[in-house]
Design a protein around this nucleic acid. Structure first.
Length: 501
RNA sequence: GGCCCCAUCGUUUAGCGGCCUAGGACGCUGCCCUCUCACGGCAGUAGCGCGGGUUCGAAUCCCGCUGGGGUCACCA
């Protein structure tokens, strides 16, 4: 029995009855827009006490790749977005990869055929174009639902050609209450009966996505706004499933705004900023990236924008998501990340620097006790100086080198005082007399020798020393750095630098 | 082109009829702090797209316009 209206009810699930899902297609590298969708779904599930399902939509053998699948898993794990049911953790609706669910779809298709919601369609693209032209219909209108009528359909049946399957769409206005945008109505006739199964029997996204959502009991569909216009189609399919006894309700939909790039364009996959791993490589920590991404469309309060994942979960509600598209602003993202870096405990911060120091070759695969001690001593000196962790090798590299490995960078030679040789000699002389080589004593000795005796301005007094021990114009605090290097090494470096000026 | 969505400082966001002389954050500018760079502190800069209504009163509600975006596949 096929009705001519939408009779299926929308879900009224709230609280712990909420079931959301994240269902990416494994194509390419994870995009920040995709991450934000995952984040909001996760946050909504955690906020309501509901369930977060993770499913993979790999029904396009042409474009899907195992490599991309692995990257999505790695991304979610790195970000700490855990799921309750789905790929890797199992659950009552296995399997969670659509490529393994073909039998399930075939069964649903049979039911929908039996209930009269699906019909065979033999018209090819060329047939449709030709018919539109013959009838003077605009080509953009596409399919004209001609084959709903069996006698019409008969005209297009060709020997040896299998039919596609189309959904018979009710000829009524379709209205739903979008969680972020409010009531939206698509007038009857906005779209034609659409194909849900290819002639070769392969079910398409148009079928498989709502079918899985229905079978898995998804109550709230939070997804990108690019899918907004396909929502009435899905509601039509839900209605068919309802009438065929496959499901009990239609989920609620919430369409999340785009993440934009430069200009007025969606952040393109080609844009490096769109690539999650690009940000990780630059030294974003998950806390920072997630916080920033949440800010694209949502805010925790009027006066605050730094918050943790737990706080996000506590306060997040889809209904407060702003419907307008937001531009990805790298500077703001950096600032948020920097704030989170400062929030880390020193030990945690130090640990997180290691991979960046290793990939830059500052540290090897094996880390010695001495290196670990140096890192521990140096971490607090730079924690407030970093925006992204990839700055670590540049900032800390000199602490893990020997005097002869120090390269004096060009810009570090600039701004030296006339008497740089004298300054270095005085500094060396002063340091040699420091018996307890600690920050305070070092500072005292150098202050006396350079500021008081030589009457130098601080920047002329300490600039050369900074360049000498680090080779750079910018470094962690000088005296602390000297303490970490030790007396002998410090003097060796200053002497070596003195020979080059 | 049809249909749909969107519209507050440069960016992001607060605002859900009077609390708005429109708030915060990032950015930018200046100052303070200072051994570099940062952190931090202080101050400043800058916005309701336009036009009609409704109302005693509109950034907030309604309509239109303009502008932007999306979508119209046997991709997802």
């Amino acid at each position: 029995m096929t009705s001519s209206a939408i009779t299926a009810p929308f879900t009224t699930a709230t609280g712990s009855d909420v079931v959301v899902r994240f269902c990416p297609s494994p194509t390419g590298t994870p995009h920040v827009g995709l991450v934000r969708t995952a984040l909001f779904n996760w946050a909504y599930a955690r906020h309501t006490g509901g369930k977060f399902v993770f499913r993979i939509e790999d029904t396009d053998a042409e474009r899907d790749s195992e490599e991309s699948f692995e990257m999505i898993l790695e991304a979610l794990r790195w970000l700490g977005l855990n799921w309750d049911e789905g790929v890797g953790v199992g659950g009552p609706n296995e399997p969670y990869r659509q490529s393994q669910r073909t039998d399930i779809y075939l069964e649903i298709v049979e039911k929908l055929k039996a209930s009269g919601h699906l019909y065979e369609s033999y018209m090819s693209g060329e047939d449709i174009d030709a018919r539109n032209e013959a009838e003077g219909r605009a080509k953009q209108l596409g399919y004209g639902n001609w084959e709903r009528d069996a006698s019409e359909r008969a005209k297009y049946i060709k020997d040896g050609v299998s039919p596609a399957l189309r959904l018979r769409v009710p000829d009524v206005d379709i209205t739903f209450d979008d969680l972020v945008r409010g009531e939206i109505t698509f007038p009857a006739g906005s779209f034609p009966d659409f194909v849900v199964v290819r002639p070769n029997g392969q079910p398409l996204y148009t079928l498989v996505n709502p079918v899985d959502d229905a079978l898995m009991g998804i109550t709230h569909v939070l997804r990108g706004e690019d899918l907004l216009s396909s929502t009435p189609r899905q509601i039509a399919l839900y209605n068919a499933m309802f009438e065929a006894g496959i499901t009990k309700f239609i989920p609620r939909f919430g369409h999340l705004p785009y993440v934009m790039g430069e200009g007025n364009k969606k952040l393109s996959k080609r844009d490096p900023e769109s690539n999650l791993f690009h940000h990780r490589d630059r030294g974003f920590i998950p806390e920072g990236l997630l916080n920033y991404l949440a800010l694209l469309g949502w805010g925790i309060s009027a006066e605050r924008d730094i918050f943790s994942l737990d706080e996000l979960a506590e306060h997040f509600d889809v209904e407060n998501v702003n419907p307008n598209p937001a531009r990805f602003d790298q500077k703001k993202a950096d600032a948020i990340n920097a704030s989170h870096i400062r929030l880390l405990s020193v030990d945690d911060f130090a640990e997180r620097l290691i991979p960046y120091l290793q990939s830059a070759g500052v540290l090897g695969h094996q880390i010695s006790d001495v290196q670990r001690a140096t890192l521990k001593a140096a971490a607090p000196l730079v924690q407030e100086r970093m925006v992204v962790l990839s700055e670590a090798p540049g900032l800390l590299g000199f602490l893990f080198k020997t005097a002869d490995e120090i390269v004096i960078e060009d810009d570090a030679r600039e701004g030296m005082p006339e008497n740089v040789g004298e300054v270095l000699a005085a500094a060396i002389g002063a340091l040699e007399n420091v018996s307890d080589f600690k920050t305070e004593a070092i500072q005292e000795a150098l202050n006396h020798a350079l500021i008081e005796v030589l009457e130098l301005k601080p920047r002329f007094a300490f600039g050369p020393l900074r360049t000498g021990i680090s080779g750079r114009r910018i470094s962690p605090p000088l005296f602390e750095s000297m303490e970490i290097l030790g007396k002998e090494e410090t003097i060796k470096r200053l002497a070596a630098f003195a020979r080059t000026v």
